[in-house]
Design a protein around this nucleic acid. Structure first.
Length: 843
RNA sequence: GCCCCAGUAGCCCAAUUGGCAGAGGCAGCGGACUUAAAAUCCGCGUGUUGCGAGUUCGAGUCUCGCCUGGGGCACCA
């Protein structure tokens, strides 16, 4: 489907059919060059240390059908970087692989009564062929699929290392449950209370699940972002920071007094406002936490039960609504404020979250809006302890949270808020009832999935030995091959449980009958270390070759969509840090630089089936050619901005490519012709372009590089067509055309290769090397200096670039236009910025 | 509610980081070539740099406050 109405005739010049002799034909080039590149192994790194190494990585694709427009953009960007660094003389590792475990394969298998691997590997083949057509400069010999046993063997091996370090553990806990997909979801996969995948409202369910203890790395994941600043997009760092959610405050211990036959109990709360302890007027525990049941007196137990049922019936969407009225029940218990001994009623409510902080809070209604809403609903007392100058919360209904001075707070009275916080913590620490504490929003990573098409968890459950890891030499624990179709449909437990022959094994420890763990790992586990596997994908003694890993890691430039700003990147960072701590790699951050390419939109909206605004990549490639599509992606906007396919012109790109290609046709000088006598003006443009392009590529301004290249093509055309001069025989024209070919090879590999061939050079232009610019040719003979009076341009003078400040000042003051503008006024100051500008300020 | 990013010509976007607002492209208009058209080649750019203040000799660029759009987090104590 064509998005933009293109007339048939409008594309005639690039049409694939029956090209005229000597005409630009993308189809002919696409047929000719891939085999040449493959034979020359152009994109396989030499990996022998003779050249400095650089690792350029695109986020590997999930094999859902064929490549789409989004892939076309992302991989065009990554390929520019890889091809540029290769031209610059680096040994570039630019691998490709597939994130090939995942739910869609399973759904397809159920639908077609097949094994998920059939759909998966068929799609991989399709995508691989498309990538080759798209001419990404990947080293195909390093191809990796996460669903290959040779790969997931090492995912399991790494899981075991995490397990041994106490970083992988099981616990019973309420988990996010998607009733439709019949599977557990990580917090990250719950979007606005609904399943990220199918949109079904998520409910809670208690299950025994595997977790990675990512919270143990919260501090480092946060602190080490400092070394990424400036090389990662600011918004990604901001998102990760928010997600980790570090907040400083205190743990405060409250004693819940014995009551109604229940014994006294210590309960700790987390607060960021220990300065407001005197303002606590009640105490709240999360209604759905075990502590609520433990505390409630017999008298109030029935009330709590009913309330808990009511809470459980709510979906996450309902529960998270901030407009909802506060609800809760009294537990019959009282907590003692450690600072003033006051007795506070203990309530259970659902506005306190069981899995944040300690699941219990001290409520300070005067200075916290949620507490105030609750106090208003249940007619609980409100006591201001901070004079902020704002209106009394009991009157305004608005809790005050600004700066101010402590009141009604015993010995803290009179202190400003900033001093009262440490003072309160000091008192608590002194009396042993609390301490400074840093709390994180980040939770442990729930990695179990009740799914088939994933990496099996390499644990055996033995009735006598408990959890027993599968010995390393027995890895991989392979997925059973005999489950297919309906066997895989969701039943609330993992489909693997149905494979009895697979499940029932001998305990590696006591050799008694035991059962395999039937969960598989979240596919984010697979993608948390694939970049390490690419370094030595055939290595059989470990996940990667220790002799190679530090030569390539960290990844110098990672390219991918912002949709992975939190999950994948945080997990990959976590894995890298753990593997670093295992002493296996030097790097403790995986990706030194990150580039988030924008999305490809159509008509201002993301392409989607429901909107019917999808653009088919292969149709675009058929119509305009690979190079034109790639160039359009690059030229449309800065890499990180969205590209609206309705706003851009692939036919315009095709036109430019043909124009560039014709330059090579018009060159009549021989390769290696002495260029020193060539047209100086054109040479100047050529060398300026080389210098500018390098600077622009270093800062990822790929769209501007294309604009500069267009200027060079225009200048070259003009020189060829000029009535005076040597035209196509001028060696400066050859120099320009060769420069165009080399720079163009980053964006349009087919056209560039063909130009290079026409210019009489052997393949491949990808190895031509970045041209060296001649500084002498960048120096302009004269520059235009602007003369301003009071900031307004009044004159221009042609001066030598080396002109001195004094000389330029004299020239400017001598100008008639300046004198007229001054109109007899005296001069206060003259600002001279030689050789470009003079600004005269009248008195 | 909190945080991040963006806003320049009809459209996509440049602007050497504080120095002439315009590089490149799309669209449009005109010319050359052609019997004609296409292709090709050449030519044509005044606009509240979202708005308002401030700093400065000088602001698209820096500061503050708003507006609009996009994104992230959100009953997180």
């Amino acid at each position: 489907m064509s998005v933009q109405p293109e007339t048939e005739t409008g594309t005639a010049a690039v049409a694939a059919e029956t090209p005229e002799e000597g005409a630009y034909s993308f189809a002919a080039m696409e047929a000719k060059w891939p085999q040449v590149w493959e034979d020359l192994k152009v994109f396989t790194p030499v990996d022998d240390g003779s050249r400095e190494r650089r690792y350029v990585l695109d986020m590997f694709p999930y094999p859902s059908g064929d490549l789409h427009m989004g892939h076309a953009e992302a991989f065009a960007m990554g390929d520019v970087v890889a091809r540029y660094l290769r031209q610059k003389g680096f040994d570039v590792l630019h691998p490709i692989g597939w994130d090939s475990f995942g739910l869609p394969a399973e759904n397809a298998a159920i639908k077609r009564n097949a094994h998920p691997s059939e759909w998966t590997y068929a799609n991989i083949d399709t995508q691989a062929a498309s990538f080759k057509r798209y001419a990404i400069s990947a080293d195909w010999s390093r191809r990796v699929h996460t669903s290959d046993p040779e790969y997931y063997r090492w995912t399991q091996w790494l899981f075991k290392r995490f397990y041994e370090r106490g970083l992988a553990y099981r616990k019973d806990s309420p988990v996010n449950w998607c009733p439709k997909d019949q599977t557990v979801l990580a917090n990250e996969q719950v979007v606005n209370g609904a399943c990220e995948r199918c949109g079904t409202p998520v409910t809670k369910k208690s299950l025994n699940q595997w977790y990675f203890k990512i919270t143990e790395y919260a501090d480092r994941l946060l602190d080490d972002m400092d070394e990424l600043r400036g090389h990662w997009p600011e918004r990604v760092l901001a998102m990760q920071k928010n997600w980790i959610g570090r907040s400083e405050g205190a743990h405060v211990n409250f004693v819940i007094e014995a009551e109604g036959g229940k014994p006294a109990k210590d309960v700790t709360v987390f607060t960021t406002r220990p300065d407001t302890l005197y303002g606590a007027t009640f105490f709240v525990v999360a209604a759905d936490a075990p502590i609520a049941v433990e505390l409630v007196t017999e008298e109030h137990a029935a009330g709590l039960d009913a309330y808990r049922e009511q809470v459980k019936a709510l979906t996450e969407i309902e529960r998270q609504s901030t407009e909802r009225e506060k609800t809760g029940v009294f537990t019959g218990r009282y907590a003692v404020n450690p600072l003033n001994g006051e007795k506070l009623p203990v309530w259970a409510a659902d506005y306190v979250l069981a899995d944040y902080g300690t699941g219990a809070i001290m409520a300070v209604p005067a200075h916290d809006q949620r507490d105030l809403d609750f106090a208003t609903t249940f007619d609980l007392p409100v006591r201001a302890v901070l004079d902020t100058g704002e209106e009394d919360p009991t009157v305004s209904g608005k809790a005050t949270s600004g700066e101010g001075t402590l009141i009604n707070s015993g010995i803290l009275d009179g202190l400003p808020k900033a001093e009262a916080i440490p003072a309160a913590i000091g008192i608590l620490e002194e009396q042993g009832t609390g301490e400074k504490f840093v709390n994180f929003r980040l939770r442990d990573w729930l990695l179990s999935r009740q799914r088939f098409w994933g990496t099996p968890i390499p644990i055996i459950h033995c009735p006598s030995c408990g959890e027993v890891p599968v010995p390393d030499e027995q890895l991989p624990v392979r997925l059973p091959a005999d489950l297919r179709g309906e066997d895989l449909s969701p039943k609330g437990t993992s489909p693997l449980a149905a494979a009895e022959a697979w499940v029932n094994v001998d305990c590696p420890n006591c050799h008694g009958p035991a059962k395999r763990d039937t969960d598989t790992m979240d596919t984010f586990v697979d993608s948390s270390w694939y970049f390490l596997r690419f370094v030595s994908p055939q290595y059989t003694e470990g996940p990667f070759d220790p002799a190679k890993i530090n030569e390539w890691m960290p990844v110098g430039q990672y390219v991918g969509g912002v949709e992975h700003a939190i999950l994948h990147l945080l997990y990959a960072r976590f894995f890298t840090k753990v593997i670093h701590d295992l002493g296996m790699i030097d790097a403790d951050e995986p990706f030194s630089a990150l580039l988030n390419q924008g999305q490809v939109l159509n008509g201002g909206k993301a392409m989607s089936k429901s909107l019917g605004n999808g653009v088919d990549l292969s149709e675009q490639l058929d119509k305009y050619g690979v190079d034109a599509v790639r160039l359009t992606m690059i030229f449309a906007s800065p890499p990180e901005d969205d590209v609206d396919w309705a706003d851009v012109s692939p036919s315009g790109s095709a036109k430019f490519l043909a124009r560039a290609w014709r330059l090579a046709q018009d060159v009549t000088s021989e390769p290696g012709a002495d260029v020193s006598a060539g047209d100086r003006a054109l040479r100047s443009v050529t060398h300026r372009t080389i210098a500018d392009a390098a600077a622009l590529l270093d800062t990822n301004k790929f769209n501007v590089v294309v604009a500069k290249l267009m200027e060079l093509v225009n200048a070259t055309r003009k020189t060829i067509d000029a009535a005076a001069g040597a035209g196509g025989a001028d060696p400066a024209v050859r120099e320009a055309a060769e420069t165009v070919a080399v720079i163009l090879s980053l964006f349009a590999p087919y056209t560039a290769e063909d130009m290079w061939n026409v210019l009489g050079h052997p393949a491949s232009v990808a190895n031509a090397g970045w041209p060296v610019h001649d500084e002498a040719l960048l120096v302009q003979e004269t520059v235009t200096a602007v003369v301003q009076v009071q900031g307004k341009v009044r004159d221009r003078v042609e001066v030598s670039p080396g002109i001195g400040e004094d000389e330029l000042r004299e020239l400017a003051l001598a100008s008639e236009n300046v004198q007229r503008a001054l109109d007899g006024r005296g001069i206060r100051t003259v600002i001279v910025r030689a050789p470009k500008l003079v600004n005269i300020v009248p008195a």
